[in-house]
Amino acid sequence: MIARFVLAALLLVSACSGRTDEAATPSLETILSGTPAPALSDYGLFADQARAQPAKGVVAYDLVNPLFSDHAIKHRFVFVPGDQEAKYSATDVFDFPVGTVLVKTFSFAPDMRAPETGQYKVETRLLIHKEDGWAAFPYVWNAAGTEAVYAPAGKHVDLDMIDPAGTPLSIRYAVPNKNQCKTCHQSGDAVLPIGPKARNLNHEGPVGINQLADWQRRGMIDGVPAHPPIVPAVWDTRLPVESRARAYLDINCAHCHKADGSASNSGLWLGWTESDPVKIGLGKHPTAAGRGSGGRIMVVEPGQPDQSILVFRMASDEAGIAMPELGRSVIDEDGLALVREWIGSLDVQE
């Protein structure tokens, strides 16, 4: 107890020595404060914030399958404080200790076919495990990419780019507000992370070695088994289309479309582990779709993607029709094609 107290105090003192110091560590005081810090740099998560060089104890990671967010390039980091560790789960998000911070920066480039050239940061979302549970905090970057400020009400940012398919694209990118963060991160009455589950992390991340093994080695997590589950990589075309489509729906839809998510009342549950065909949408009528039905009768009409509401809503960029409701203003053509292919591969119902 005393040793930990001294360690914590030392960490705090060392945090004061400068924001670009290689030895800088995150500020637990700021992380656990009841009030969000006005600037991202206040947390001390980066040794060099402009270059996204993480501070000591902050680890870059990625997911096997990312959520589509208007083609945004995402840079993720995790900070697990001091000698604490997360508890492993085979199916759910890991049980991270209080003080954990998940950092996700959303970046774009003028030509998304060459994403490293001229890449710039638009927003960073923090998900912090406070004493009383997880909470989400959106930060919006300045034009120079040196600092991001707290933006609880979100923001609209006009962006121009060449999209990954080579088409010029102008979008009105929506930085979500604090409540919208919760809409996707809701789990019952609580807010929970979405990505850091074993099946999503179980591959070589940006560090170049298996992330789960790396986190175990670093002492960030306990209880990783010899063979953790892995979700099929959505864009690995060697894998069966059904599993790729289900993996896509899992990461893009199931954070709301689950029993204790924001879309629970729809009864349409799209998680990877869901096995009831009706809950996945086969033979299921819409509940509250309104014009989101597009005049179609079934959520998924096997063999007939053009008669499936799921496809209609993925293929729209209009509020009131488009799904997901938040986080995208353009259509994910690749994801749409995959889901179409999957529905087309299902046996037509008599």
């Binding site: 107890m1 107290f5 914590a8 105090a9 005081e29 700021t30 656990l32 009030t35």
Partner: peptide
């Protein structure tokens, strides 16, 4: 521990006001 850290943090303040407004 958290509360202890917080009180310690006040003592170990860097001379800059904590920017929590």
């Amino acid at each position: 521990l958290g509360s202890a850290c917080l009180s310690m943090a006040i003592l170990a303040s860097c001379g800059q006001p904590a920017s929590t407004d």
